[in-house]
Amino acid sequence: MDPYPPSNELGATLGRIRGLVLTQETAQHAVDLLAQVAQETMPNASGAGVSLIHEAQRTSVGATDALVRTADDLQYDLGEGPCLTAWATRSPVMIEDTTTDQRFSRWSGAAAEAGVRSCFSVPLLRGRDSLGAMKVYSTVPGAFDEADRARLTSLSVAASALLGHVQTSETSTRISSELRESLRSRDLVGIAKGILMQREGLTEAEALAALTARARSTGIPFGQLTADIVNGHGASGRRGAP
């Protein structure tokens, strides 16, 4: 969409300006720690993992062992799997046996081959946001009973609160999309100012004053007003578009 995405450095700068500390390490540390806690909480799990997901892309992943990591990587390679579904549907996903489950046939087959036989994944929810998923794997089928599921679900609530905090102060993808939007909007204001200056013989300050006055009198949001002018739809107050 935007051919010139701002560099990560700009995202980091904006993050700092906004009083946020941008460190990939913070998120990585949190997901590693939470994966560890999930495994300790779930005695029947052979391994546990936590993934932060943003726009169907995994931004950070914590895993207790290589098998968890492999099973998790497979989901993003194949574009399907219990965590992606838990994240997208905001509800838990239970796979009793990867050799018989039909919902994610490609993932289940590959995971079974790698040694994963059952899996339980819960979404990490914070308000309206789905931050990612927390999951436990086992090398035996049907490893997780009702009590296990309830335990992981309650752990996920605490994990979401922690990650929501890390996420808002950390994920540079989100900040950089905000930044991109903001820079684009700022750019449009600049172009609209230039158009008014040229068309109506105004100074830069006068052009900005004219734009704010127009936004106030019409009630049109500033961003839309300037975009309209740039796209040639905003007729000039005095002369009309050439």
Binding site: I17, R18, G19, S182, F222
Partner: peptide, 17 residues
């Protein structure tokens, strides 16, 4: 102030946060 500033910045505000 951060939220206000970001929006002000997007409207071409010149002053920093």
């Amino acid at each position: 102030v951060g939220e206000v500033w970001l929006h002000y910045f997007s409207l071409s505000g010149e002053v920093d946060e």
